[in-house]
Design a protein around this nucleic acid. Structure first.
Lengths: 224, 224
DNA sequence: GGCCGTATGACAGTCGGGTGACAAACCCCG
DNA sequence: CGGGGTTTGTCACCCGACTGTCATACGGCC
């Protein structure tokens, strides 16, 4: 549904907030320092960031400014400091919202939803994942090969998206069954069949998989 | 620089806030009731709205919902009620932010800036959308095919507009039900029927959808 | 060569979407 | 207020596409 990066140095708050976020259905990734947060956002961007202002090392203000350089991710400040001066400074640094601790989880959740609603409306940025001459347009529900649309079924599309979200990384049949089909257990051959069908559509030279590669004994991966 | 619509029934607050807003460089238009506010937004849309929750007649929550029907203008609630329940309700009704009175003008200004920054990138509602030989004129409430006007019913028109606002993007039946009909839940087949009717009118070759495309398992999209 | 893991083709059941019919709701006039 | 036409939402049916299963063929690796 959505991923949230939480940057907060207080262990207790970090833990309880990230649990609350998971309860709300988000995938939460929690770190304790600004540096770790920036690192995380660069490697595996979350689509919302919660950040504390008082952090060891690089402080929250600077962290926000740096995050803004990485991408246009929505940012909410979660801070114990409640005076106008701090709120203004946080927002001016580039945050979208500011919540004062102690946090009412319900309010946080509502503000998150509001912000995400707004950010989504603004950026119909059709994200495109490209693997050589293979493009995946999740928003459009479309796959293109050499710029030409390819007819792909829903399951194939989800499978492809799942693989595309972890480029170059091997995903086991188990993981794919779980993430694409929602099966906890099931016949792993099922994955093979769909991979085969997908290959026929997106690999132009039959029998020479260039993007969708089998890793014997482990699973499949999508590479450039 | 920017215009703000202020909906607030308390004379003193209305006056002082609108002066503060003008000081910040905004063009402020202040009204005392939700009804006046909606009227104003319909006739001469401001690009941000501040609204109080406790209003005579139609209350703030309903006002927000109605505003959302008019356009996607950024909305900030300004209210004396500070409990979580109200904040959540305000945001869920469609507001983007919530400030508790008494208002620190500096904070209000900063939140306004943050929200406008976020909302700025929004694509201005195009007055004419063209999809090949298909033109949509939202202002005129008209659809043309090969330059010839086509008779389209109100529902069909709204459906078409909704799709046209997200060119190339798949919209699920759920989303369409919600945005076109305002239904939170409902029979998804309803969408199919109207899409079918619309197709008959705007696709000249029957059975060969060129613009209004079905994406199996996902929804519909409008493409060039 | 034998074995294990993978590819592939065929098949039947299921699902999703298109469509025409129909009745209720609505609207415009007289 | 009433009547005819239009629009809207519901339903049932049909068809083709998709899915999961299975049996079999293939191919690398020890």
């Amino acid at each position: 549904m959505g991923s949230v990066l939480l940057i907060e140095d207080d262990d207790r708050i970090r833990l309880s907030l990230s649990m609350a976020l998971e309860d709300e259905g988000y995938t939460a990734h929690a770190v304790a320092t600004a540096e770790e947060g920036l690192e995380a956002q660069r490697n595996d961007p979350a689509d919302t960031v919660l950040v504390d202002l008082m952090l060891p090392g690089m402080d929250g203000f600077e962290c926000i400014r740096q995050l803004r350089r990485v991408d246009d991710v929505p940012i909410i400040v979660v801070s114990a400091r409640d005076d106008t001066h701090d709120i203004v400074a946080g927002l001016e640094a580039g945050a979208d919202d500011y919540i004062v601790k102690p946090v009412a989880v319900k309010e946080l959740a509502a503000r998150l939803r509001a912000l995400r609603r707004r950010a989504r409306a603004v950026a119909p940025a059709v994200s495109v994942a490209a693997f050589g001459d293979l493009e995946i347009l999740p928003e459009a529900g479309e796959v293109r090969l050499h710029g030409e649309p390819v007819a792909v079924t829903r399951t194939e599309f989800r499978l492809l998206c799942e693989l595309a979200e972890h480029p170059g990384q091997v995903l086991s049949r188990q993981q794919l069954l779980q993430r694409v089909w929602g099966y906890e257990i099931g016949d792993e051959r099922l994955v093979d069949v769909h991979v085969g069908r997908l290959r026929h559509k997106i690999e132009d030279v039959p029998g020479a998989p260039r993007h969708l590669v089998t890793v014997r004994g482990l699973g499949y991966k999508l590479q450039r």
